[in-house]
Nucleic acid binder design. Sequence first.
DNA 1: CTAAAAATGTAAAAAAATTACATAATTTAG
DNA 2: CTAAATTATGTAATTTTTTTACATTTTTAG
Lengths: 285, 285
Amino acid sequence: MNILEKINSQITTFSKSERKVAEVIIANPEQAIHSSIATLAKVADVSEPTVNRFCRRLDTKGFPDFKLHLAQGLANGTPYVNRHVDESDGPDEYCAKIFESTMAALDIAHRNLDIGQINRAVDILTQAKKISFFGLGASASVAQDALNKFFRFNVPVNCFEDIVMQRMSCINSTDGDVVVIFSHTGRTKPLVEIAQIARQNDATVIGLTAKDSPLGKECNMCISSDVPEDTDLYMPMASRIAQLVLVDILATGFTLRRGPKFRDNLKKVKDSLRPSRFEKKENLS
Amino acid sequence: MNILEKINSQITTFSKSERKVAEVIIANPEQAIHSSIATLAKVADVSEPTVNRFCRRLDTKGFPDFKLHLAQGLANGTPYVNRHVDESDGPDEYCAKIFESTMAALDIAHRNLDIGQINRAVDILTQAKKISFFGLGASASVAQDALNKFFRFNVPVNCFEDIVMQRMSCINSTDGDVVVIFSHTGRTKPLVEIAQIARQNDATVIGLTAKDSPLGKECNMCISSDVPEDTDLYMPMASRIAQLVLVDILATGFTLRRGPKFRDNLKKVKDSLRPSRFEKKENLS
DNA sequence: CTAAAAATGTAAAAAAATTACATAATTTAG
DNA sequence: CTAAATTATGTAATTTTTTTACATTTTTAG
């Protein structure tokens, strides 16, 4: 794990002085790796041994070793720390923060992902007679995206934004049908209800939602991204991105399960778009 | 440039002893970053100042600084490479690959992002009388997602998946209207046409698309993510994720521009959902 | 072959990091 | 609420590491 993330995740376990050190480092890791222990101690307003203890607590051999780890973390593209957008941020800053926190969220989602569940979900999907994707609000576009992928697989699929249509569709479902429901919180009442209806009609319900949520409990199986709630601007952000990546994963799993011949089919679907597009210019140089 | 490459490229200019140092480092850079100058000097069979001079010659401040650079170079050696999903991959592998390549794509998008363009786009959006979001295929769900964010801002917004509706909407547009068009390739003919129509009717057209594409050229301004085309499974994957993050960024920019009072409004929108949700259980432990 | 220049090493100085221990702050048990 | 115990933090000394200054050796040019 990136040492910066490690600092962030353990920051609550630190003592007051250690936290000061952590904050200084997080605020400017670039500077930290070019400072001596004395400088850093002064900036953080603590003693040098405190900085040293801080380093040891993070399972490094000492300050120089810590700097090495930090340097590697920084080099790895991005110090994706969950930094929150601030009122005073300029465009540079909020862009960086949004990219970084999105990547951090994906990293968390990856770590928490139960691969066994993915595999089982792929099983279920490949055997489905019909697949329905439902979501509301921000999750509605995730459902639509899922539709855009799975319709290519030559399986009957559908996707409704309208809760009434969703209900009717679920009432009509039968054994062998699969209903995939997207909801970050898992607490949206109408979706919990359609999960119940679908199950009562023998459909298999897969929830891309929080594990212990009301919706999660109604589903036959549940794939959870465990990405923390987006609180920044009262809008879903990283959570729906994580859901989309899960859609990609399910679609990929589906494709691989079907073998190489199936992939040729996908190519055909894609190639069918060509007439509606302008030709790509080849290098004429 | 990676410092290891630099050593390699300059090795001919080194003196005999310096070359010994270089060889020891190249042979085992991992070990080098965990050695003291004394150890390294002994292994290379040279004196300590020679090692120091070697470091300086490579434009570093000294031995510790050199190790920092080396550490970064090593970390950069295994960045998240765009690893492609392979026929024989098990669930562990394809999950990891998809997460990693998505993150790599976001990293690229971030690096290539023209922040000035973002800022100008935010300008335009905050001053819009009406905002329309259009996309087709996978980009349709991106457009829908954008709608889901921007409708909260109390600006007239719309979003159609239907190309005919898109056309009609553009024909009706006037000065002060903003049309945002999503297309990864920028070569989808109908979208290029609606961009033309919109501009002929004095709307401002923002393209989230490739810079030099036919669509890009028709737009008043163009925000490009420069994420490489997804070739894995003939389906759009990372590219649309990058677009969504750009949507987040524009929405965030919009919000920040409007100031703190505006954020209270957003909170209200979010809170309005509460009655439709099951209560979140508080810790009862 | 000799003188100058360059390269390398030795040893001392400086800087940095670490340790041992003392003091202060906080928590816990009574 | 107080006193003991624990934990956290800092001071100062020690050790390690790096750097500098300078001496010696090696190389090169005439």
